[in-house]
């Protein structure tokens, strides 16, 4: 797909902006690309988010992939820091897992190629 790498960068940009702005000062990111998938793993250390916040993030990220939203709006991801675009991230990925492990918020995003 066109601009695939740039789209991954935009997703990561959005998430880094979101977590640094709203939650933490320490993040790990791992990106793995193979023939079928692109997997993005993010660990947000010592999260301050409560259960309600995490449920909301999970709901937005676990929404169905929406190709038409992606084609129209993908360049908007990560553009500003006064608002978040987690809906857009949710529309650009196929699967999301959100877990709390030892007070750290661990997110795994899978995007089919």
């Amino acid at each position: 797909m066109k601009h695939e790498i740039k789209k991954i960068s935009k997703i990561v940009d959005e998430l880094v902006t979101f977590f640094l702005k709203n939650d933490t000062d320490e993040i790990d990111i791992k990106i793995k690309k193979d023939e079928k998938n692109i997997i993005i793993k993010i660990v947000d250390y010592n999260t301050c988010f409560n259960k309600e916040d995490i449920d909301c993030i999970t709901k937005l990220l676990c929404a169905q992939r929406q190709h038409e939203i992606e084609a129209y709006y993908w360049q908007l991801a990560g553009e500003i820091d006064s608002d978040s675009e987690l809906i857009l991230v949710g529309a650009m990925i196929d699967k999301a897992k959100v877990k709390i492990i030892d007070k750290n918020l661990c997110i795994e995003l899978i995007r089919y190629r």
Binding site: W74, Q75, L76
Partner: peptide, 19 residues
């Protein structure tokens, strides 16, 4: 129009709904 519309949205950062 598809590539153009995706590009133009950065100008107003989504503050104009009729992109």
């Amino acid at each position: 129009i598809t590539p153009l519309s995706a590009h133009m949205i950065k100008f107003h950062d989504g503050f104009n709904l009729y992109n």
